[in-house]
Write a protein that binds this DNA or RNA. Sequence first.
DNA 1: TCCATCTTTCAACTACTCGTGAAACGTTGA
DNA 2: TCAACGTTTCACGAGTAGTTGAAAGATGGA
Lengths: 129, 129
Amino acid sequence: MERSKVLMALAALAHESRLDLVRLLVPLGEDGLNAGDIARALGLSASRLSFHLSALEQAGLIRSRRVSRHVIYSADLAGIGGTLSYLLADCCMDHPEVLACCGSAARAALHSVATGTAGTGQPHPDGQG
Amino acid sequence: MERSKVLMALAALAHESRLDLVRLLVPLGEDGLNAGDIARALGLSASRLSFHLSALEQAGLIRSRRVSRHVIYSADLAGIGGTLSYLLADCCMDHPEVLACCGSAARAALHSVATGTAGTGQPHPDGQG
DNA sequence: TCCATCTTTCAACTACTCGTGAAACGTTGA
DNA sequence: TCAACGTTTCACGAGTAGTTGAAAGATGGA
């Protein structure tokens, strides 16, 4: 992933409402949520939400599609994962002490890799079992 | 890790010079580097560097210690790891598709956990155990 | 076509961040 | 004490992000 893209993603994530937004959308997967429902869920005005959604979409962290009069937003899991991967691998050179802090996440990752559950769209089966 | 701390860390990382700084310091571990050498390495003015270092230290991503007339800066691996862990676990709920993007990093993490190579310096104080 | 609904864009303002250069501070050695 | 060095702080100006409310654009149903 490009460095400039990562910087955009970090800047986009460095805002309370936008972090909430990602947190809201990730578990919903491809289904996503329309702008109006997101605004209600997060207590944001329509214009402010649109501003934040635009920032996240430009940063490659979410995607949008039009369905009837609604615009559905969903998390771009590859974009989010790519950003984190850059930080872990390219920036921290997979430093063991940094990775150790992500231990449970790492275990879940390996599980998903091993069982091929990644990309099925379903939430993590046993998380940090 | 606190949410506000994560937001500070993300804002701190969302700047080219500061991302370079972390990238420079992580491989050096506890040894770190003094401010003057960092300034030369990154081509920054002393005042600019001091500003950026302060932002990173406030965000809990680096640490400083005075040695004679030098100030040595080193990466706070637990702080960096904690930030990434928050994003992976609390924000993305360990979503398998996100974790899959960090596959190699995850493998390395598991390896370090399994072999106990993590904590080359000292065990991370506030990481998740 | 008209109206209601959903979403985005715009203008204006405030507040913050960034970068520069000068000055101040703390430490070391003579 | 003094001078030299390493680092931080300050004041200033420029640029950018964030918020708000109103208006505009897009869509669907009557």
